[in-house]
Simulated scan of single mutants.
Amino acid sequence: MRIPQYYRRKGWQRFFAGMIIGGFISWFIFLFMFGTLQEKQTLLIEKQKEEIKDSKKYVSILQEDLKKLNKENKESLLVQEIKVKITNAEKFGLKSDSLDIFQAQEKIQEDLSDLLAKDLESVYKNNEIIEKTIENKTLKLNEKRYQVEIQKVGYFTTIEFYVELKFAD
C-alpha cells in the first residue's frame, strides 16, 4: 500500500498549506491570549505580594504598639506613689505647710512604703490591714501625741489617704 502523492495536486496543497497557516495563526492567537492572561495574573500576584508585605508590616507595627500598651497598662496598674493628707491640722493649731505636718505625713508614708510597686488589686484586697496599720500609728507633734484616723482612701496608681488627727488617750 502506498501513500498517494498529494504534493502534486493543487487542491490538497492548498488544504495542507491552509492547515499549516491556520495552525500557526491559531498558535500565535493562543500565545497572545495566554500571554495576556498570564501577564494579568502576574501583575495581580505582584500586587497581592505587595499588599501582603504592607499588611505584614502594618501587623508587626500594631503588635509592637500592643506590646508597648500592655507593658504600660501593666505598669499603670502598679502602685507608683503614696500621698497622705491631714485634713484637720488647723484644728490643733498646726499649719498645713508646717514642718510637723510634713514629718507626720512622711512617717505615715514610710510605714506604707512597702506598697510601692505592688499590684493594685492585691493592695486593694489588703485594705483593712493597711488601714489598721495607719490607725494604730501614734504621732508625736509639738510634744503632743496624736492618733491617726482614716477618713477617705483613694485607690489608683497613686493611693491617697485623707486622715484626721485626734488626741491620743
Rank of each mutant, 00 (worst) to 15 (best):
T157C: 06
G11D: 15
I108N: 00
L165V: 03
D65Q: 15
D114M: 08
I108Q: 01
I21T: 03
G18L: 15
I82V: 13
W27E: 12
T42F: 11
E72G: 04
F92C: 01
K68V: 15
K91F: 14
I29C: 10
F24K: 08
T36E: 11
V59D: 12
E121G: 03
K57W: 09
R8G: 03
Y162D: 13
K40E: 07
M33V: 14
I82R: 00
F92E: 02
Q41F: 12
I45T: 07
L112V: 09
Q80V: 03
F92I: 01
K68A: 13
L69D: 04
N73C: 04
Q147C: 08
G93V: 04
Q48V: 04
I159Y: 01
E164F: 07
I45L: 14
V153R: 01
D54E: 12
G154K: 14
L37P: 03
E149S: 07
Y162Q: 12
D169P: 15
D114C: 04
S122E: 13
T157N: 14
D97N: 11
I52D: 09
I129S: 12
R14E: 04
I29D: 11
E131F: 03
Y58R: 09
K144E: 01
E64W: 05
E81I: 07
E135P: 01
G22R: 10
I29P: 02
D54M: 08
D97K: 07
L99H: 07
V123I: 11
E131W: 03
N127K: 13
E143I: 05
I86V: 12
I45Q: 12
R145T: 06
F34L: 08
S60R: 06
T87S: 13
K56P: 04
S96L: 05
L165E: 01
F34P: 02
R14L: 11
K83W: 12
D119S: 11
G22C: 15
V153L: 03
F16Y: 12
K10E: 12
A104T: 02
D97M: 07
I82G: 00
K140H: 08
M1P: 04
E51S: 06
Q63H: 10
I134G: 01
L31Y: 11
V84K: 00
I52R: 14
E160C: 03
F15G: 04
K140R: 15
Y7Q: 15
K56F: 10
K152R: 13
Q13A: 13
Y146H: 01
L31T: 07
F24N: 06
N126M: 14
E160Q: 13
Q13R: 10
I25W: 08
Y124N: 10
I108F: 01
K118M: 07
D54L: 14
G22P: 05
S60G: 08
L141S: 00
Y6D: 09
I134V: 14
M19T: 06
L37Q: 15
L77I: 05
P4D: 12
K144N: 05
L115V: 05
N88D: 13
N136F: 04
L112P: 00
K140V: 06
D114G: 09
M33Y: 15
K125A: 05
L94A: 00
F24D: 09
F161E: 00
V148R: 00
K107I: 03
K53F: 14
R9M: 07
Q151H: 08
F15M: 06
T42V: 08
K10C: 03
T36W: 12
I134R: 01
S76A: 15
N136G: 11
G11C: 07
T133P: 02
K10A: 10
F161L: 04
E143L: 08
Y58I: 06
T133H: 03
